[in-house]
Design a protein around this nucleic acid. Structure first.
Length: 285
DNA sequence: ATGGTTTTTACTGCGTC
DNA sequence: GACGCGGTAAAAACCAT
């Protein structure tokens, strides 16, 4: 088969190989393009979600995604040993929810085509949350969704909470609440998401040329260095930059089309666009 | 909780095709 | 009329305090 040169999601040429997991992913949008390159089974190239969900190939040999790390589960001291044994490994209550959590994590990560690195990091995060007793009494699905979002942000992978919510069983608002809860309780500090990272994917979805894409990224850089992005939503800013770039390049796309792709509204695009255009125009005199 | 800011929702008019 | 664009006002959401 031929080598993949361009990311089908965002048009990026920065395709990176992760040797540890034998998978090929896009450095710009963080989408897995191919995995398990070593064994070219008949179904290795399952792109769509159904197949991806079915493909329960276990990951690396020793992984945090395994519910017991492949080792024994520590038994809490002081508790009566009334654990029911199932198979060779005893299943404690929290172990069951852990399996649930990791299953849900895998399902969502597959649907979003996220790299194995991100899944593992999220699983580690989940374990840390368990140790801090942040899980019990809360919705596992909400927490996992929020954690996946946190990890994406940490990895600089451009995914919005909305996009996570699309493949989650839980509604956006609850996931947001879980997200705020987690970063607070775990003291997680996240750098603001960079609008520039959304540009390639959005441009590709809109079928825009690389000229527009590069121009939009330049606009973001300029406006960012002028202190504009403060408090603006990253996707709205990205959308506005694309709108501006598309007009400058004679490939005009209308506001509402961009708004749809950016997951925002025409009004927001317009507001950001006006401000950018005004201030960037001043610069050229 | 509160207040300031941003975003969304909903509705309007205007010009053009 | 349909569509794209611009404006407004009020509600909702967000963020730091």
């Amino acid at each position: 088969m031929e080598r993949i040169r361009t990311c089908p999601e965002c048009g990026s040429k920065r395709i990176v190989m992760d040797p540890k997991h034998a998978e090929l992913y896009c450095a710009d949008c963080g989408v897995v393009l191919a995995e398990a390159l070593i064994d070219l089974g008949p179904e290795w190239r399952a792109y769509d979600q159904d197949q991806a969900a079915q493909r329960v190939r276990t990951g690396p040999p020793v992984s945090y995604r395994l519910h017991n790390k492949g080792l024994s589960t520590p038994i809490p001291k002081g508790l009566p040993q009334t654990f029911r044994l199932r198979g060779r490994i005893g299943l404690e209550g929290s172990d069951k929810t852990l399996i649930l959590a990791l299953g849900e994590l895998d399902r969502m990560a597959s649907a979003l085509k996220l790299p194995a690195d991100v899944r593992e990091e999220t699983a580690i995060l989940y374990r840390e949350a368990m140790q801090q007793n942040l899980i019990k009494g809360r919705s596992v699905e909400e927490l996992v969704s929020a954690m996946l979002y946190i990890t994406c942000r940490q990895y600089g992978i451009p995914r919005t909470l909305k996009e996570i919510a699309m493949v989650s069983k839980m509604p956006l608002k609850k996931i947001r609440r879980a997200y705020l809860f987690l970063i607070k309780e775990m003291g997680i500090k996240l750098a603001p998401a960079s609008p520039a990272r959304f540009i390639p994917r959005f441009c590709s979805m809109l079928g825009l040329s690389s000229t527009v894409r590069e121009r939009a990224i330049q606009i973001i850089r300029k406006s960012g260095s002028m202190g504009m992005a403060k408090g603006w939503s990253p996707t709205g800013t990205a959308g506005a930059a694309i709108y501006l770039a598309s007009r400058l390049s004679g490939e005009s796309v209308d506001e509402s089309t961009i708004a749809k792709v950016a997951g925002t509204t025409p009004i927001t695009i317009r507001a950001r666009y006006e401000e950018m255009q005004k201030r960037l125009l001043l610069l050229s005199y």
